[in-house]
Design a binder for these strands. Structure first.
Lengths: 232, 232
DNA sequence: CCTACCGATCGGTAGG
DNA sequence: CCTACCGATCGGTAGG
């Protein structure tokens, strides 16, 4: 009620009354982000074609025509959701891999990738990637190429890990197919896993890894001390 | 051009000129089926909300209002696609299991289930089940219950097989989670597998099984003749 | 970013 | 199953 437009450095912050959202230029990035987040949530739960631009505007507290001030079209908004989601996922995955020891075993690297992938699907920004996964067909061809490029960057680090596991004999599927099946199994969890349920993301990742790699023990196949012959 | 309405038993069949589709009562089942098949194909490729009832009518060679002679609403048409697809899948899966020897190993039963599942996804009626998989959110709550019942029937035979494999130690994931991950990996193939590509459905199924069960050899874990201890 | 609006398209229906 | 039609909603825009 009082102190409108008071996010200048001098204005004292009051505990009550959220700071007003100002329509000036400095705020535009935030309004755009609100549109993206609302659109991601709506696209994920109802599907691109079933959500109107009016729904998206209302979710951001705007009038019906206002999203078109920030985005050229509804289609551009969908593409932006996917693009921002993938850019975040790529950066986040790289950070996760950087946190793995340099001498880590391939199964530890796969564990990091799987655990991170679940974080992307069910973490705080968890609507963006499912939209990409399930609204692919709503993109134009050029938009698909643009997202496909980012997807290739995201999936690239999986291949050396799967190849190493294949050579060790812990993975009996051709690595390119293994990647498709594994990411499919993980992505499908969007359909049934509930983050607020009894199963933690850690436990979910562990169970998935057990399915692909067998027993999580350090020694493969529960063999006694007898060393495993490694193919040249 | 000639011989209109000549599918009475006396009329000789000509090689040229398809027999005309008659609008009389005997044909209604076929017209309904054509609507279902066209709707399934369109829903799969473009999504429920992005397909108009006019598109569906045109695919069956009808005028815009005519689908509503066969189905109460667009929503009822979607539900019918899923329901027919699931009823067919349940019957077909039962037949596939009936074709397995009574003393078959659990891994052979899983192979039959996986192979059959790919047949459902990529066989001649291959649009119906993907629509069910990817348009779940477009159903009303009552429709969801109706389809969920059929889905439970379809998935039921997977559990004893996975439990047996778990007890044998060939599956290291809790069977209910294994079922979700495995069906997810298979269902995701809808996004990337092309039946007209170089990889056959048999090879696809074999690669998937290798991922879940390890080496396809009869002896688990490449152990020598030494028998595996089976838990009581 | 809002107001006011446009042309197009949509699901569905009455009557035959 | 077709013809002709209705009310509602949609993506998008001009002007401020």
């Amino acid at each position: 009620m009082d102190a409108q437009g008071t996010d200048s450095p001098e204005a004292p912050r009051r505990a009550r009354g959220r700071p007003r959202k100002l329509p000036d230029a400095r705020d535009e990035g935030n309004r755009r982000r609100e549109l993206l987040r609302g659109a991601a949530r709506l696209f994920r739960s109802r599907g691109f074609a079933a959500v109107s631009t009016r729904d998206i505007a209302a979710a951001a507290g705007m009038q019906s025509g206002s999203p078109f001030y920030h985005f050229e079209s509804k289609s551009a908004l969908l593409h932006a959701v996917m693009h921002e989601g993938m850019e975040h996922a790529v950066r986040s995955q790289q950070a996760a891999l950087d946190g793995v020891r340099a001498d880590a075993l391939p199964q530890e690297r796969l564990a990091a990738l799987v655990r991170h992938h679940f974080e992307i699907l069910f973490g705080p920004e968890g609507d963006f990637i499912p939209v990409m996964l399930y609204e692919w067909r709503s993109l134009t061809q050029e938009q698909r190429h643009s997202i496909a490029r980012l997807k290739a960057v995201y999936e690239a680090p999986w291949m050396p890990v799967l190849q190493a596991l294949h050579q060790q004999g812990r993975l009996c599927t051709a690595p390119p197919l293994a990647r498709l099946f594994i990411l499919g199994a993980l992505n499908w969890a969007v359909q049934w896993y509930r983050p607020d349920g009894p199963l933690s993301l850690d436990a979910l990742a562990q169970q998935a890894l057990a399915l692909f790699l067998g027993p999580p023990a350090a020694e493969p196949f529960h063999l006694p001390a007898q060393p495993l012959e490694t193919p040249a």
